[in-house]
Design a protein around this nucleic acid. Structure first.
Lengths: 210, 210
DNA sequence: CAGTAAATCAAACAGCTGCTTGAGTTCTGA
DNA sequence: TCAGAACTCAAGCAGCTGTTTGATTTACTG
């Protein structure tokens, strides 16, 4: 018999940890960061209340970890869409890649969109100690700046970065506000036809301005 | 002696009511909707805890009323700025008027900006029964549409409305996210030089799109 | 077969939550 | 002058909050 290289106890612990994380993310998506309770999470995860303290230290840490994972997945999806861009790509193509994860979530609606709400909330004011995500932010920013610079020679990099963050705000807003709820479930093409021109226009800026 | 046309008791009641409202708005701005407590508000307002139930029925109603007042003030300021627009106004002028209240709050920073955070939060998902504000939303929308239609003949009204709401999202995002905090306290002109081209570009959309 | 570490569990903890109660004060109006 | 309305107040309510404790079960190891 081959030697068992797994410890069933640790394996079980990892499973409850994962179940707690997904339960926490689900409830965060439903009720928002301040509306989740320890007992709701543990009940949904089929775990004991003490499991949270045991595995994460506190409810606060559990929620932040769950949100951080979701935000990381979001940034990864965005980076994957944008890494296919070339400097010769149009601003409309840049907008499409930039908004891809949110557009997909809008088209899917339901739970995916609810998770995006959590991502947007925590993206609005990221807790201290999420430096691990800084690299991911930098990645998408580099990809985007390469395209922007190719189209907007006269604009300072500082302004281009600002436009990117405005675009991120606009996209995130769709996850938070009623306007996004109205789009939920619509076909991807329809959402893109509405959203991408606005996004690309924001990137381009106004020609009348200096 | 002339007849007293004021009831000192009702006058005192009105004063506590106002103090509760301002205290509630202050704490909402500081801690967010879920972070305020009955006792904090009453202590800040110099009132008894029972005063909230007596005057408003519940803490929930008090907070919603306070936020509604703040949002109403915001919409009034925006409408005032936009009512001066003519159909011949440029998209950049439209952007300036549209963003005026938020730009002012950003330039002022501190408490004014914190209040804007509350306005943005409640604007993201307005509680049921804020129909009183629908008129104010319609006002600014009409003003904006008049200018937009003059510049963008080929674009359907449905899309123009969408762009307006995207612009609102972008502006509100500045009150919520770190990007806004970075702008806080900067001179108005500098904030406008960054923001208005993006806003106007979003209004105009991308020429390559349809 | 011990010995031990990991994980789970029920129960209880102190603290805070929003809200109510009933008595008390202040002022009005006839 | 006095009945009653408008308001304030201290005290207390039941309920929920996150967290801890000590015992118990589970599974690996020498």
């Amino acid at each position: 018999m081959p030697p068992k290289n797994v410890d069933l106890r640790r394996e079980a612990g990892q499973r409850t940890r994962d179940q707690l994380l997904t339960a926490a993310l689900d409830l965060l998506a439903e009720r928002g960061p301040e509306g989740v309770t320890l007992r709701e999470i543990t009940e949904a995860a089929g775990a004991n209340v003490a499991a949270v303290s045991y595995h994460f230290g506190s409810l606060h840490v559990l929620c932040e970890t769950a949100a951080e994972h979701a935000l990381a997945r979001y940034l990864d999806a965005q980076h994957e869409a944008m890494s296919a861009l070339a400097p010769s790509s149009t601003l409309l193509e840049l907008a499409a890649a930039f908004a891809r994860p949110m557009v997909d979530a809008l088209a899917a609606g339901g739970h995916d969109l609810a998770v995006m709400r959590t991502v947007a909330r925590f993206g609005a004011d990221p807790p201290a100690g999420w430096d691990r995500l800084d690299d991911k932010f930098d990645e998408t920013r580099r990809d985007a700046l390469r395209v922007l610079k190719a189209h907007l020679h006269g604009v300072k990099e500082r302004e281009l970065v600002f436009r990117l963050r405005c675009a991120a705000g606009m996209v995130n807003w769709l996850a938070l506000a009623p306007i996004g709820a109205e789009l939920a479930g619509k076909p991807t093409k329809q959402i893109e036809r509405l959203l991408l021109p606005v996004l690309a226009g924001a990137f381009r800026g106004d020609p009348a301005a200096s």
